[in-house]
Amino acid sequence: MSLLEIKDLHATVDGNKILNGINLTVNRGEIHAIMGPNGSGKSTLAKVISGHPDYHVESGEVLYEINGKPSKILELEPSERAREGIFLGFQYPVEIPGVTNSTFLKEAFNSICKHQGAEELDAFDFNELIGQKCKGLNMDPSFIHRPVNEGFSGGEKKKNEILQMSILNPILSLLDETDSGLDIDALKIVAKGVNDLKSKYNATILVTHYQRLLDYIVPDFVHVLYQGKIIKTGGKELALELEKRGYDWVIGEKVQ
């Protein structure tokens, strides 16, 4: 059974059609990269999967494996999807003034533990866990006591997404341009975060504009999204070709 199966998904925002029939199957253990020109609908797809209320699904289905059964997750609240192991790394992480990273993460971690029947951690053990994760990702632990993303640099916000991912230990990670705006070292940190999580149970969908990330995280599939549709799928060599030739030739092929 596939972990995620998207069937002919059509979605709108503010009455504009953005997704025009997406089909995508992701199995456990796989890494998928989604590339495509600006405005083609990549973030929209990630947000629809995770349940953002601004996006309306007109037709189609998203099935996700819960307790060994394919489940229609479009009916679930975003928090329920997260508790079932779906994680969205935001293209533009949101600033939450007045809530510290540690409070926020502890709340999130414990709500997921509770749902999965695991024991919640107290403040002491949780800080221990965060400390380890920060160290593992070579991140400054002082981040933890600052309000979520407030005043963080663009790259720090992205690293914070990876920290959250590594603490929440998701089954399906949707990383929306987590590599944009990162310096080389940070890029390696992000790649490490993803590679550390990789197992035969987990899957990752990476939205990216740069083949560079794919030097560190090797995708099993590369998809090209254009005008709300996947118009080409290939292996990691497709990313290299896109890097050299741009999107026009793929779009041209499609038109013919």
Binding site: S50, G51, H52, P53, D54, E77, P78, S79, A82, R83, F87, L88, F90, P93, V94, I96, P97, G98, V99, T103, F104, L105, E107, A108, S111, I112, H115, Q164, L168
Partner: peptide
């Protein structure tokens, strides 16, 4: 902000709890 609430929801926090956390943060500030 809808986006703030969604950010918390996307981490497994219910909408109700997200509203509580954000309102409390606003006041405690």
């Amino acid at each position: 902000q809808e986006d703030e609430i969604f950010y918390l929801q996307s981490r497994g926090i219910t909408k109700k709890r997200a509203v509580q956390i954000l309102s409390e943060a606003f006041a405690i500030d």
